[in-house]
Each structure stands twice: as structure tokens, then as C-alpha cells.
Design a protein around this nucleic acid. Structure first.
Lengths: 346, 346
DNA sequence: TTTTGGCACTCAACACAAAGGAGTGCTAAA
DNA sequence: TTTAGCACTCCTTTGTGTTGAGTGCCAAAA
């Protein structure tokens, strides 16, 4: 197939997409030749546009309107046409400042990241909270609240704190709890949670555990404390920016999207996809594989701590997003968070 | 003034308000006499309607439309006309079931409360997380994460867990931390956080503290751990229900409201108002004193633990809300939460 | 062979007018 | 005091041009 576009076609496609991103209006041949840098007659441009439509990069809402990009058009744009420049020093500083006043608590930092993503991109910010299983064990503490109730506090290497109330069927003294705490902290330090879980399972099966009441308790408690949230969690900020988008002025459609956000699970799935990927990932429209989001695009990037990838963050908006300005924002935020997680909490 | 409405006027006002709540359409005299239980001629009804408009209970969008309630109308309805019945057993059970599977962790419970309020009312659910200062001290624990970094974990009587990372400028051994922990838990148990803070301040001023290094540290740490969140916190669920309301089909107006939600501070202020009040409180339109919410109403109720009021929860929607069905939902949820907080975590 | 000017055509968007109808206020009769 | 009747208002709907941006195609120019 003739999917190898000529230089000229590419230039025109790029101009159309960028103009459409800026104005949200179908782009006509005249506008291209007059205001944008196309030095051809409208008629020639029309020929190219017809060709691009044929090939599936453009579509026309109706005969007498201009052209708008298709998903394939956006995809080609993002993959080959786009020119992404780094943020300049000033912008980076501005973003970085957002984290200045905040404490060291990881949860706050992630929330701030989502806010910052949203306010700098003017779309909706998404930050996935690290799954327990990818985090590194740092410390566990059991606090006895009542004879049958223990609060397990669990801190990961990257500074994430999780609490869990554990009901126990056998009273434990403070002394015993302390012993359990010490034992676990010594044996498990530096392991990933997955490893900790595995360790607990194998040790439980061993004879030693069968006869040592305290050890048995220790394992029961820790496995209860470390049950993974099945769902994962996500921080969404700036949903209201969706209401600014002319493409979502239809309330029905708008409502479906907001509901999808509230439900979270779909967004979690989409962010999960970015976990294995290096650098910034762009998911456009139906590539999400969710009909609810067929008019939305995501720009995501993974962030990591000392010991590898922790989660992903990004921005969601309409297909018609200024990719070239948002990609560096997402990119920089991810690396910033990674850096903060690296240097924090030593 | 003639603000003492006759029985007949009240009946008609009630019918108009309830019809308008149901249909979101201005109510005309004919509809009242035909379908609703008014046994008068349209002309008579019109006389009464004109009178009610004169008095400020009704308004007409334009001459040839029916009447819609004013804020004053809604206020009168809520104060004197409304018939609120209790939820029946089945509905109560349905609501209660939502909390069944969930653990005992307070934060989860409050989130579930917000969800339940939203889904049962079909509007937006609001739950205010208890302010630290109104909670009762139960337990504090300091976990040393690194030479200069201590994690303070703080549990309130009602089961709320709060973490805070505290940077210290002087290394403390585990032993010392334990002593501090023990000292604080013994001295402060059962006091409210306000009292704890006061205690810390006075003791710090006393001579004893000046010379006892550990004591001094204990107070520094605990006051660092217990600094109040200035803002308070709030759990909002079901914003998307707002998109269903015909009165907010204007995107501009819609966006202002959603932004107000995201910002949270205004909603926190509104929920705060319900703290001192017994039972269900209704705030209608401009009674909120915020122009952003001049078309919104809140139905709130306070919930409490063993030791008094903890916070408030409720529902926010358009002025045109089915108050009579939502009031019992909010009421029951508040009492349910109070009950759960009472029995939990002993 | 490629580019361009010219021209007929399409179709959403806008404006305007007319018809329809729901609802009101007022008056006079029951 | 209530109600039937009637003129009046004004939103809503429907229909009809009109406009204009933009297209596709063809033939002439480069």
C-alpha cells in the first residue's frame, strides 16, 4: 500500500492536525494556504487532502466542512510528525515548586503530582498509587488497640504508609507483639512484598513454625497485614477540565466519561499498561479498547523508586490534545517523582 | 404580614413544589386540577397561585409558563409542608449491607458512606472526615525509619488512623522512642486532641520538661505529629449525578459547580455548619452564601462516636431535590455510621 | 506531469416568519 | 366565593430562504 506519504503530504497532515488541535474546527484548504505555512494553491491542497482521506488519516464531518484528523491521523502524528521539545528551565522550576512546601509523605506527593499534571496540562491528571506487591518492605509495626484488635502499620522503602486493622482470635501481649515486630523487621527488610509473601508461605509450612506459637502468629499477622488491595488505587484531579472541551458538550457523552472516571477501574487498567514501558506512552481513542473512552486519549509515563518501577502517571483528555506540549509535562513529572522518591526517606 | 397561608394555599403550594420536583417543568393550573389532588377549577387555582407569587413562594419564568418554586417556597416546604417518613426495614437493610463486607477501618467506612449516600439518593454524596481536634486520643506510636526520620502513627478512639512523617534534628534510639511512646500513651489516653495539645503546651513550659531531655523530645514529637490539618477533609462521590440534572445543562454553570467540588474548601465550610446541629439540616440555594452554589441545596446530618459529634455527612444536589426521600436517607446513614463507630474497635 | 484558476454543487448554520399551544389575568356570571 | 369565558402573552416548533465555507472536478497554465 501507498502508506509511505510524501513529504508534502506529511507537512499538510501535520498542519491540519495542529490547526485542528488549536481550534477544534474542521480545517479547510484555504485556511491552510493563507495562515499556515503551506505555499500551494488551495486546489493542490485539496487534492492532497482527498488522498489523505482516502488513506484514512483524515475525515470530513460533511461535504462542505473541512477535514478533521482520524485516530489513525493522530497516531501517525504522534509517532512520526510530532516535534517534542524539552520543557525550559522556567517551566521545570514551576512544576518542581509545587512539591517544595509539601512534606515527605508519599501519598501527598502523588496527589500533588496529579494536581500539577492537571493544572499544567489543563486536562485531567492521573496518578496510580504503587501496588503493594512492587514495593520494598521497610518496616512493619503492630499496635495493640484492644485484646482482639491489632493495627498493622506498614512502611515501604519509598515511604508509602499503609494501615490495616487485623482482628486476632488470640490475645497477644505487648511484649509478644514487639517480638513479632522485631523478628519480621529483621528477616524481611529489603525484600519486595512479593518475596515477603512467598517467604511467609514457605516458612509457615516448615516444621519450626508449627511448634513455635509466636512465629506462627507472626506469619498470620503479617500475611493478614499484607493482603494486596485487589483493585489498585488512582488519584484523579481536574475532572472539571473535561467540561471545557467542545467535543464533550453533549451531556450524555460527558456523563459517561465522568462516570468512567468515578468508577476508576478502567483508568487503573489503562495506567497499568504503561508499567512495562519505558518513556512516554500515548493511547489514542479506541486503542483504549473501552467504548466509553473512544473519544479520549491518554498520555502516560512510568515512575520509579530506588528499586524499579512503582507506578504510572499521566493525563487524560480528548483525542484532540496538544500532544507536543503535554508529553514533556508528563515526562518531566514522572522523572521528577522518581527523583523525589529516590532521594527522600533515607 | 399575611404570611400565614390558608390551608388551601398550602395544599396548592405543596402540590406545585412536589410536581416541579418530579418533572422539572413549570407547573400550570390545569395540571394541578387534573392530575393532582386539587378539587378546584383552574381559575381558582390561578388566583391562589398569583397570591403565592405575590408572597414570594413561587415565580414564573415568563407569562405563559406555569410556576416554579422560589427558594422561599422550598424553605417553607421543607420547614412546614414536607412529610418525611422513616425508611422501611428493607431500605435500611439495603443501606446497611453496603458496610457488611468492609473491614473496620474508619476511612473505608466513610468512603462507603459517601458512595451509599450518592447511589441511594441519586445525587452527590458528601462525608466530612473528623477533624483531628474533635477526636479522642487512643494510641500513638513512633517508628524510626532512619536516623533523622520518624513515622508517627496516631490512632483515635473511633478508629481513625493518621500517619505523619516527622523530621528530627537529634538521633533517638529505639529504646528512647519506646519510652516516649509509653509515656505519651499513658498520660494522654482518653483525652481529646485539643486537651492533649493543651497538656503538651503547659508541660513543656514546666521546669521538669526543661531538664528532662526525653520528656522534651516527647513533647516536641507529639506536637509535630498532632498538627491539625488546617483544611479538614471531605469525601465526595457521585459528581456525575449532577450531569443528569436538566437545570445544569448549561456547561458554564456546570463547570463552576464541579470546580467548586474539586476545590473542596467551600463544601467543607458548608458541612462544618452542621456540626453543632441536631438532626438533619437543609441548606437551600443562596443560604449557602456562595454564589457558585446558589442553585444547589445540601441536606446534611452530623454523625458521632462514643464521645460526641465527629463530623457531618450529606447530599448535595439542585434546589429541586426530592427532600422528602433524601432526608431520611441522610438521617439514617448518619445514625448508622454513629452506631458503627460506637460498636467498632473496642 | 503537476499545479492552479474557475465553477457548479453541497450542506450546515443562521435568520426570520408563521403557526401552535400552554398558561395567564381579568371580568362577569353562577 | 367560585368558575366559565376570553383576550393576551410569549415560548416553542416548524418551515423557508439565504448565506457562506468548503468541496470536487475539469480544463487551462506552468
Amino acid at each position: 500500500m501507498a502508506d509511505t506519504l510524501t513529504d508534502r503530504s506529511q507537512k499538510i497532515l501535520e498542519a491540519i492536525i495542529e490547526e485542528y488541535i488549536a481550534t477544534a474546527q474542521p480545517v479547510g484548504s484555504k485556511a491552510l494556504t493563507q495562515n499556515l505555512g503551506i505555499k500551494l494553491s488551495p486546489a493542490s491542497v485539496r487534492n492532497v487532502m482527498a488522498e489523505l482521506e482516502e488513506l484514512g488519516y483524515l475525515a470530513s464531518p460533511h461535504t462542505s466542512a473541512g477535514r478533521i484528523p482520524t485516530e489513525k491521523g493522530y497516531r501517525f502524528y504522534v509517532d512520526t510528525l510530532i516535534r517534542v521539545s524539552d520543557l525550559d528551565r522556567q517551566q521545570k522550576d514551576q512544576i518542581e515548586q509545587q512539591y517544595g512546601q509539601h512534606g515527605l509523605q508519599m501519598a501527598d506527593m502523588l496527589r500533588e503530582a496529579s494536581r500539577t499534571l492537571s493544572s499544567f496540562s489543563r486536562y485531567t491528571g492521573l496518578v496510580m498509587v504503587p501496588r503493594l506487591k512492587v514495593t520494598i518492605f521497610r518496616h512493619i509495626e503492630f499496635v495493640k488497640l484492644s485484646p482482639r484488635l491489632v493495627l498493622a502499620v506498614f512502611v515501604t522503602q519509598s515511604g508509602l504508609v499503609q494501615n490495616k486493622l487485623v482482628e486476632i482470635d488470640e490475645d497477644l501481649t505487648h511484649r509478644e507483639l514487639e517480638q513479632i515486630t522485631n523478628y519480621l523487621n529483621q528477616t524481611m527488610a529489603g525484600l519486595s512484598i512479593q518475596e515477603v509473601r512467598a517467604r511467609v508461605v514457605t516458612e509457615m509450612a516448615q516444621e519450626k513454625a508449627l511448634y513455635d506459637r509466636l512465629l506462627r502468629r507472626a506469619f498470620t499477622l503479617s500475611s493478614a497485614a499484607l493482603v494486596d488491595e485487589i483493585t489498585g488505587n488512582i488519584i484523579i484531579e481536574g475532572t472539571s477540565h473535561f467540561l471545557e472541551q467542545p467535543e464533550f458538550s453533549d451531556l450524555k457523552c460527558m456523563k459517561r466519561i465522568v462516570q468512567t472516571f468515578e468508577q476508576k477501574s478502567i483508568l487503573i487498567d489503562l495506567l497499568d499498561r504503561g508499567l512495562e514501558t519505558e518513556g512516554v506512552q500515548v493511547i489514542i481513542g479506541s486503542e483504549t479498547a473501552y467504548s466509553e473512552l473512544s473519544d479520549c486519549s491518554l498520555i502516560t509515563a512510568a515512575y520509579s523508586g530506588k528499586h524499579g518501577t512503582l507506578g504510572t502517571l499521566g493525563v487524560i483528555g480528548p483525542n484532540r490534545m496538544p500532544y507536543s506540549t503535554i508529553i514533556p509535562i508528563v515526562d518531566y513529572t514522572a522523572s521528577l517523582i522518581s527523583r523525589l522518591l529516590d532521594t527522600d526517606n533515607d
